[in-house]
Amino acid sequence: MRVEIWSDIACPWCYIGKARFTQGLSAFAHRDEVEVVFRSFELDPDAPRTSPVPVVEMLAAKYGRTLDEARGMEEHVAGSARAEGLPYRTEGRDHGNTFDIHRLLHLAAARGRQEHLLDLAYRANFGEERSVFDPEVLIALAVEAGLDEAEARTVLADGSAYAAEVRADEQEAAELGARAVPFFVLDRRYGISGGQPAEVFTRALEQAWAGREPVEQSAAGACGSDGACAVPQS
């Protein structure tokens, strides 16, 4: 079985959702027969490629809140992350364009190091005093994940490297009806939207494994009360 996960490094619920999915997968009897593939999705593709802004300021401007209200929003998400054992800083984090991060993740996928780099990038962005929007931080993370430093630098310097792969992932997400992340697609039969509890992922994996035939759909892409969605067939 293949599970594809559309996500963005800038998305805290992707960070939380990945941890919950991993927990749900660990409780699935056939977990060793599941291939997990991570796909690109940019929450804010128009964000500047340089000069990232503080997350709290971005949230206040985006949602029309005061800085204190935006800090409260961050504290709420931080509580959910910490409940999963994930480090989460509510102050001092940056928000910026994630396209280069996605390109580097595609390089990592080609070298069999994608999930390792993804985990390192999540932890750096949400839990550490490192900005993933700094190219030198990205290079350091790539090396830590086992990538060749010279190759990583070459990819970051060439804006076209793996750009088509990122755009293809985003186009496919649009075709599947994914307008938010995280978005999980199981065997191209079922989808789950959002950072659902671990047990939801376990049940969905069991359903996808047992069904092996598309479920009857009342509406294409409709989500049930438990967060599971039927994925339109291509």
Rank of each mutant, 00 (worst) to 15 (best):
A204F: 06
A204E: 08
L205S: 02
C229V: 05
D134M: 10
G195R: 06
R153F: 05
P197E: 00
L138M: 15
G177A: 04
R189E: 05
A168I: 03
L147F: 12
V132D: 11
C229G: 07
G194R: 04
D148Y: 09
E199R: 02
G159P: 00
G195K: 05
E216I: 04
Q217Y: 06
E172L: 13
T202P: 00
V215K: 13
C223M: 14
W209Q: 05
Q196E: 05
G195L: 07
L138C: 09
S160E: 15
A219V: 12
E172M: 07
D187K: 02
S218Q: 13
D158G: 06
A152D: 08
P197W: 00
V132R: 12
L186V: 10
G194P: 06
R167C: 08
S225T: 14
P135E: 10
E151W: 04
A152W: 09
R203D: 11
E136K: 14
A161R: 11
G159W: 04
V132Y: 06
L156Y: 02
F184D: 07
E175F: 04
A145G: 13
V231I: 15
A178W: 04
E216D: 13
L156V: 00
E149F: 10
E175V: 13
E175T: 11
L141I: 08
A140L: 04
R212E: 15
S218F: 14
E149A: 14
I192T: 04
A140C: 02
G224A: 14
V185H: 03
S160P: 03
G146E: 07
S225W: 03
E172H: 13
A220K: 11
L176Y: 09
Y190F: 14
L205I: 00
V132W: 09
A222M: 08
Y162L: 01
V137G: 09
A173F: 03
A142K: 10
S193R: 12
T202D: 03
P214W: 06
D226Q: 01
V166N: 11
V181F: 10
R188E: 15
E170V: 02
D187I: 00
G224R: 12
Q196T: 04
L141E: 07
E149M: 07
A168G: 06
L138F: 12
A222Q: 11
V181N: 05
C229N: 05
V166Q: 10
L156I: 11
D169F: 09
Q171H: 13
A178D: 02
R212I: 01
V155A: 06
V155M: 02
P197V: 02
